[in-house]
Structure formats: structure tokens, C-alpha cells
Design a protein around this nucleic acid. Structure first.
Lengths: 200, 200, 200, 200
DNA sequence: GATGAATGAGGATTCATTCAT
DNA sequence: CATGAATGAATCCTCATTCAT
């Protein structure tokens, strides 16, 4: 292995991955405009032209990160639906399980989540799409008689997104709650509101 | 009257207010970095030096807008609490009323709300503060026996903030719901979850 | 007397004189570029248009101050020469007397002196002119046999200017020496250098 | 070789040195405020961003020039002292020698000297420091019995600075005197004043 | 005699991006 | 695979100066 100039001989894909990771952290903490290519490459111990070897532009790397988040989230949302009915678990348990998976993903990919779910303009589209999927799920449950058909499920699903958003930021990312527990509490809150005993 | 230099002799406070209003719209739509002083003054049919006649800097006018939002919101949150118990209204109605006032304020000040509640870095502090006030209110209700003491009211209040956030953006600002109706639905959702009949 | 708007009814010449005085202090302390018209008028409790009522431009008021200094200094330098021979005083005493008058003027007009003798580009011309007059004086003394004809009087006169410059700044303006005493020491220094007893 | 973008691939330190040199000339001729970064880079056939590649700010490059001057002058002043007594030269010759070295440095670095000794605000500190060193030297000579102890050496040293200042500008920089000759004349003037034969 | 309001013209600084090697 | 050197295109901000009253 050639070790002369520290980076010489490094695997190109390693440099690319490194830049991507550092960029995620930078964007997550300083936002798109607050992040400078010069800072990213400095932290990666690379130079600016090298950055452009792997990415078209600042927008491009940002978009790549958003897409990464979006794909994974879509996958998890879909998986959550597919798993429904696979076993004999009750509905709440199934919902909680899907949510827990998502929150675990968020937890393990904080920077990516901040970018894709909070900072980027596309986050609106992403959330909208997620809300729509949730709404469809809920409506199919209504048809099966599980939920009150008078409830506006569009409101519920959007509300759920809002709660997930907020609690991800204030409880999950602060380390105050584990994904599993947080998912459980959210599900209960939406199922029963504040008037039911919590021991169930 | 000489109208060549159209703005000459205008009222200074009008110019200031105009700049503030336009700035709010610009910041709301393009964010802090995406907003250029040159655009603001162009829309106000003024020039850049005039901007600096009324505002210290780009940061300063931004902060002024955030503060404006923060003050109004704090006022409404506090008023909402003071009004409690003044009459014989039931708790849900009181809560709904306070929330409706806030949503009305949001609705009537969309740009300001986007800035203070969504875009600015301080929005986190503002929400945190609002969540804390809500939590205190809820805890005092718990003591009076209105709510189940097993519920983690910090979760509920943060969740409520999340729901407000999200529905403000997706329902209120989209013109799909009126403040009053939205407040009612949010309150019901939090009180009873999805399992109660909505006719109450 | 009309006292409604504090400055209303003020004598125009008073405002002008006030501006001139404040401008001198500002220019003296911050230099030409470092001085802002806005600061001058603020200290005079006037407004910018008022400034332009009395002065053509920033350059104009600056020039007026330089001219003021120049005229007074020229007058003193000439007077110093005219007085020569009027009485029976010895040459050193005459020289000392003229110099003391100049230093007294400097002391009593510090800001003006800083501007005209140190800061302004014209100061070079002013000093050059002063040096020339001194040189002429010295040469006429040489002809009368008072000084050694081998001395380069252009060097001496320029040197004298340098000494006056420096000691004005470091001794006179610092309050360490009085004009009279300073003049005496300078004259001795130039007459005898460092090798003569100072008791004479 | 591609010569379209003439400067591409040039040596960075050369560009830096070039900018520094041009900046020195510009500051020397137009002062700090009168000098524009745009002029400096234009003369260097570079662009503004390149300037900021090598210097933090306009202030920074100015300060660098002042420091450069200050360091060299301090070095020369100290060297001048150290050399004293190294050989059997008489005191006047030693003093003259040290002064000649300084004047030679001034002559060979006119722009730097104008900046560090005349234009910059720090010039006062620099001169003060130089005056103090000279004074110390003189006082040590007084103790050895070389000079009259009644003379105020603080006056002499400050005066000497003034003479150096002035003659540097009017004789040295005008090309009327060589450093060596100028140093000689200054020393004689201070040693003997105007009353001694100059043939010594 | 004085001012509230406004501006033309410019100057420092920044940052994503690109050559040539 | 990587970089030293450079730049186009902005963007914020300042200041002397003027107009209409």
C-alpha cells in the first residue's frame, strides 16, 4: 500500500463515503447555506477539487443525502405495511412495531434525519408522502371496523407526523426516550388520548 | 408637488413598516440566506441605504421579526392561561379557545409564523417555552383530577406542539381548516384519541 | 428669541463656528477618512443638510481648517522675522521668541495643528515653506557673520522643523513642557549641540 | 502549455510576495483608506478572491507591513547598540554608523518606511520605542563622561527622531543625500550644533 | 435657519467552482 | 487519486450628498 501522501492510494470510494458522511454532519448542524464545501473537505483532509471529483455540486451531494434518507424511510414505511397481518399480533402492536423501526432508523442516522426530515425543502414532500401512506393504512383499518369512521384520518395522519417530528427532536435525539418506548407512547396517545389508564 | 423622486418626503415610519412587512414575506419564502436585502428594497421601491436607515443589519431585521412573533405568541399563551377558570366553561372548551386564538394569530400572520415557528433557529427555544407552559397547565389539571396522573405530560405537551406545527402547515396555511375547527379537532384528538365518537 | 426647536433661531454663524470646531477635533483624532459628517453634525446637535448649508463638502471644511492653520502659522513666521532687529536683543533670544510664539499657537490650537501640521497632505507644503523661511533667516545671519558658512542651512532648517514636529507631539501636547521652555531648549540644542554647558 | 489563464499554476508564494509589495506601494502613496484591494490585485494581475487566499483582510496585510518594518527597525537599532564598543572606533563614528544603517534600510524600503514610520497609527509607538533606546544609549554615554549630564536626553533623543523623520522625507527620499552623508551630518549637528567648523 | 427622508456610487468580503499539473 | 492556485459572481454595508418642506 502506498502511504506517501497520506491520502494517496486511498480507495476512491472511501474518500467519497467520507465526504458524504462529513457533509451529512455539516448540513445537519449548519444547514445548507451555513455549510461550506471548504469546511467539508478540510474535515476530510482533502481538497476542494477532490470534492468535485465525486460530486457534481453542493446541491448534488445534498440531494444525494436527502435521497438516501427518503429511500430508507420509504422502505421502512412500506415494510411496516407489508408486515401487517403476517402474524396474529393485534393492530396496535403492529403499528407500534413499524413506528419503532422508523424511530430506530432516525436514531441511528441523526444527521441524515435532520437533513431529510427537518432541514431540506423536500422534507415537506417526504412527510406528505409518509402521511398519505399512514392515512391509507388507517382508512383500511376503518373499513375493517377497527376505527371510528367519523374521524378525519387525514388530520390524524398529519398529526401523527407532527408528533413524530417533534418527539424525535425533543425526546429521541435528546436521549430521553428509546425508539421502542417512544413508539409505544405515541401509539397509546393516538389510540386513547389522555383519558385512558396507561397500564394497558 | 414634485413626484419625480417619488419617495422623497414620505413618512419614515411607513417606509420602515413596509420594509418589515416585505422582509417577513421574503424570509418566510426564501429563508434567511436566500433573502437578499436588494430584493427587499426593490419590492419596497426603495434603495439599499434606506434599508440601513431603519435597520442595523440583515440579522437585526430578522431578529426583530422573530421577536415580534415570540412576543405575540407568549402573550397569547399567557392570556390563554389567565382566562381559564374565569367562567364556568368546561376545560376542553377553554383549551380549545386558547388554541383557536393562537391558530388565528398564526393564520393572520403566516409569514411571521413561518419565520418564528419554523425557520429561525430560535424557533426551538420558542416551542420549548410554549411546551413548558402547556405542560404546566396540564399538570395543574392533573392535580385537580381532570387527567390521568400516569400520563407523561411532557410527552403530551411536546406532542401537542408537534401536532400544532404540522397541522398549521398542512391544514391551516393550506386553507383546508379554519382556526376554530382545527383547534376543536386537535383538542378532541388529544383528549380521546381515535376511539371516541366524534359527535360530542 | 424663538426657542421652540432648540436650534431654531440660533445664529447661523454660531452653528457654522460650532461645526468648524467640532470638525477640527474629529479630524484631529480620526483623520480625514476616519471622520464622518454624520458624527460631526451629531455632536453639534444638528443635521446633515445643515452641514451643507455652511460648507460645500467634507473636503471644503477640511481645507478651511488647513487654511486657517496655514495663515496663522505664516503670520507668526513672518512676524517673527519682522521683529528681528527691532530691539537690541541678541540673536538667540530673538529666535527663541519667535519659536515660542509658534509653539504657543500650536499649544492653544492642538486640533488645528494636528490637522495642518501632521495629518493633511498639505502639511508637507506648509512645512516646506516654513523651512524655507527659516533657511533664509539663517542665511542672512550667516552673511552677517553669526554662523559658520560651511553649514548646510537647508539641512539645519529642515532638521529644525523635524525637531519642532516631534517635540510638539511628544512634549508640548503631552503637557511635559511649556512653549517658552521648549523653545529655549530647542534653540540651545541647535546652537550648541550636546557639548556645551546648559547654564548659559 | 496553456497560457490563457495566465496565472494558473503560478507559485503561490510569489503571488503573495507580489501582493505584499504592491500593497506596500499603494498604502505608501494613498494611505490606508485611500488604498483599494481592487487596485492592489489589478496591479498584480490577480483577482480579489486571490487576495483573500493570502491575507485575512485589508487590515491584516497592512499590519503585516507595519510589523515587517517594525521588526527590521528594531533589529537595526539593537544591532547598532551591540556593535558599540566592539572596536576602538570613537563614539561619534559608532553612532553615525548605526544611523547610516537605519537610513540605508529606509532608503531601500521607502514604501515600508512611509507606512511604518509615517502613515500608520502604530508609527507613534515605533518611534517612541526607538527614542527610548536612543535615550538609554545616550544616558550610558553620559555615565561614561562623554556627554554633559545637564542635558535632558529625552529631549535630545526625541529631537533626533524628529530630525531623522524630517530629513528622511526631505533629503533621503528626494535623493538629495546618501544615507552615509546624511547620517554624518545629523550626528555633527547634534554633537556640536551650528557653531563648530564643519571640516572635522 | 433647519430637517426628515432618501440615494448614487462604491468597497470589503465570501463561496462554489475550475484549470493545469 | 489528488491538489495548488485562481476566479466569477455575488452580497452586505457605508458614506457623502441632496431634495422637498
Amino acid at each position: 500500500m502506498n502511504l506517501r501522501g497520506r491520502k494517496k492510494g486511498a480507495n476512491g470510494q472511501e474518500s467519497r463515503a467520507l465526504l458524504l458522511k462529513i457533509a451529512a454532519d455539516e448540513f445537519a448542524h449548519h444547514g445548507f447555506h451555513g455549510t461550506k464545501i471548504s469546511s467539508i473537505v478540510k474535515k476530510a483532509q482533502l481538497t476542494q477539487p477532490t470534492f468535485y471529483l465525486y460530486f457534481e455540486s453542493k446541491e448534488a451531494i445534498y440531494q444525494e443525502l436527502v435521497d438516501l434518507f427518503h429511500e430508507k424511510l420509504s422502505f421502512l414505511t412500506k415494510k411496516s405495511r407489508l408486515e401487517e397481518g403476517l402474524d396474529s399480533h393485534s393492530l396496535p402492536i403492529q403499528i407500534k412495531h413499524g413506528l419503532a423501526n422508523i424511530l430506530t432508523f432516525f436514531m441511528e442516522n441523526q444527521s441524515l434525519t435532520r437533513i431529510g426530515f427537518f432541514i431540506s425543502p423536500q422534507s415537506e414532500v417526504i412527510k406528505k408522502q409518509m402521511a398519505k401512506q399512514i392515512e391509507e393504512n388507517l382508512l383500511s383499518e376503518v373499513e375493517k371496523g377497527y376505527f371510528n369512521p367519523n374521524i378525519d384520518m387525514s388530520m390524524v395522519s398529519e398529526g401523527l407526523i407532527g408528533v413524530i417530528e417533534r418527539l424525535t427532536l425533543t425526546k429521541l435525539f435528546q436521549g430521553e426516550k428509546e425508539p421502542e418506548a417512544l413508539a409505544r407512547e405515541i401509539v397509546f396517545l393516538f389510540l386513547y388520548g389522555m383519558n385512558v389508564p396507561r397500564e394497558c
